[in-house]
């Protein structure tokens, strides 16, 4: 599967990663090569094979729905990029 520049731009948007215009071509080439590698999987017959999500086929362990963590808001926000009155600041979203 070969990717074109516009494909790379579309994926970069999905992943919310800015890519320099000058680098898009390079990404198109290296990503196409990696997808070429992944395409080798098509040579394997996997009819009837279950997808493997966990090495020991373990299922999600559940716990009682009880409060277990203490409130550490100030501690956790100490090194945040921008905080005001206990809230994380981001550019205005709603006018």
């Amino acid at each position: 599967m070969a990717l074109e520049k516009k494909d790379v731009e579309a994926i970069a948007h999905l992943a919310r990663v800015a890519i320099d215009e000058a680098d898009v071509e390079d990404y198109a080439e290296s990503l196409s090569n990696i997808l070429g590698l992944a395409d080798q999987l098509n040579s394997v017959d996997t009819d009837g094979v279950t997808p493997m999500a966990h090495p020991m086929h373990m299922v999600q362990r559940l716990r009682a729905d009880e409060v277990s963590e203490t409130n550490q808001r100030e501690h956790l926000q100490e090194h945040a990029p921008a905080v005001e009155r206990g809230l994380f600041l981001v550019p205005q979203v709603i006018d």
Binding site: L3, V8, I11, A12, L14, A15, R16, V17, A18, I19, D20, D23, Y27, S30, L31, I34, L35, A38
Partner: peptide, 19 residues
Amino acid sequence: RGEGFGTEVKRRILIGAYA
């Protein structure tokens, strides 16, 4: 994210997002 991640990390994020 564009500034914070290096080239190889971006590559894998993009491949993953695509897959």
